[in-house]
Nucleic acid binder design. Structure first.
Lengths: 199, 199
DNA sequence: CTCCGAGTGCTAGCGCTGCTAGGAACAAGA
DNA sequence: TCTTGTTCCTAGCAGCGCTAGCACTCGGAG
């Protein structure tokens, strides 16, 4: 009994180790630097060990993504609940979203750009992802104006994702990013928004 | 003279051949199937020939992207100029944008997801890209309402890109895509938009 | 205490990738 | 006809994701 469970515990621990090592490596040098060989070296095991835990490299990235969703959800929640009113709630949660993508690009990539395997807009999607989405929905809700909340949230999310992605890919200059975000908020809240709109 | 220029002509022709072969291969089997070996085989030259034309594989993708921008610009222009009024112009150009990404995913990827090397939001960006952007700007213009047109266009473009990207990556279900697009248009035109909004 | 069998993790290697060095073959000018 | 310069191919490097098959370790039975 106990010895069996110890082994399981150690195994689970090693799996966690793989995930955190992959994330660290990705955050330090980008996902293109995360190879199975380097990952194996980092966890001080041989390459094939990875495949006894995960079906392939993609599955490792997916595992990192699932973990990352939780972080994202937490940060979005904090931003939203700290806001005094509905309009600034959307502004703050948006800023938090962008800041997350900016501060943890590797994690953001894992969730939204890298892999495709994990289910998304279905009930089987990771709970943390739903949580993150719900935070966004809660912030969008007051500005729905009768529109379908789910779809409107998806649309707003897509807009944020587009801004983040194009900026990170060098398609949009970082300059005036705040203004673009403010413009987006204006369009979704109907109000001429507050800060960062001076240009 | 003439013999020199003939060689140059042949060389340019072969370069074009490489680009179209890469695009065809990508459209048929996706960019992950475009390897230098397969590309070389397809143009019936050896691998190193590719490197006498382009610095590396990325440069080939970039070349494809530049060509693709022209196509995109043409389609956007056609959609915009065919519209009877400002509101439907934005709707049609948006639909055309999405349709382009949907119908030619490999080309869209080359332009917006794949490579990073080509300059974008700078004067050195390919002229066709500027043309495409200008089409969007012309459609967004009437709804700018005093906002900076360039930045507003960028924001709208980002939103479209987000919708397209998330849907293509499986992050958003294809279902109700039209409704999401309609919601976005509502927010940018201020009007409760026309067709495809029944859900 | 000994031995066996399950299971764990290693070495080695496959077929692929992007990319490059070096030489063969060919064409143009003397 | 010989030389010179270019063109393009063969062969190979280092690294990729992934896997087959063996060596070893270690818990449990006799």
């Amino acid at each position: 009994m106990s010895i069996q469970s110890r082994k399981e515990r150690e195994r689970a621990q090693r799996e966690k180790l793989i995930i955190t090592a992959a994330l660290e490596l990705a955050e330090a040098e980008g996902w293109e630097a995360v190879t199975t060989r380097r990952l194996a070296e980092r966890i001080e095991y041989s390459q094939p060990v990875l495949y006894s835990h995960f079906k392939g490299k993609d599955a490792i990235v997916a595992a990192v993504a699932v973990e990352g969703c939780a972080d994202l959800a937490v940060e979005l929640r904090a931003a939203r609940t700290a806001a005094p009113d509905a309009t600034s709630a959307l502004a703050r949660i948006s800023a938090a979203y962008v800041a997350f993508a900016d501060r943890r690009p590797a994690l953001y990539d894992a969730i939204f750009n890298q892999t495709v395997d994990l289910p998304f807009a279905t009930p089987e999607a990771p709970a943390a992802l739903h949580a993150a989405f719900d935070e966004l929905a809660a912030a969008v809700g007051p500005h729905a104006n009768g529109a379908d909340l789910g779809l409107l949230t998806e649309t707003f999310w897509a807009a944020l994702h587009g801004l983040v992605t194009l900026m990170r890919g060098g398609r949009l200059p970082r300059e005036h990013h705040d203004t673009r975000l403010a413009l987006l908020l204006e369009r979704f809240t109907g109000t001429p928004a507050g800060p960062g709109r001076t240009l």
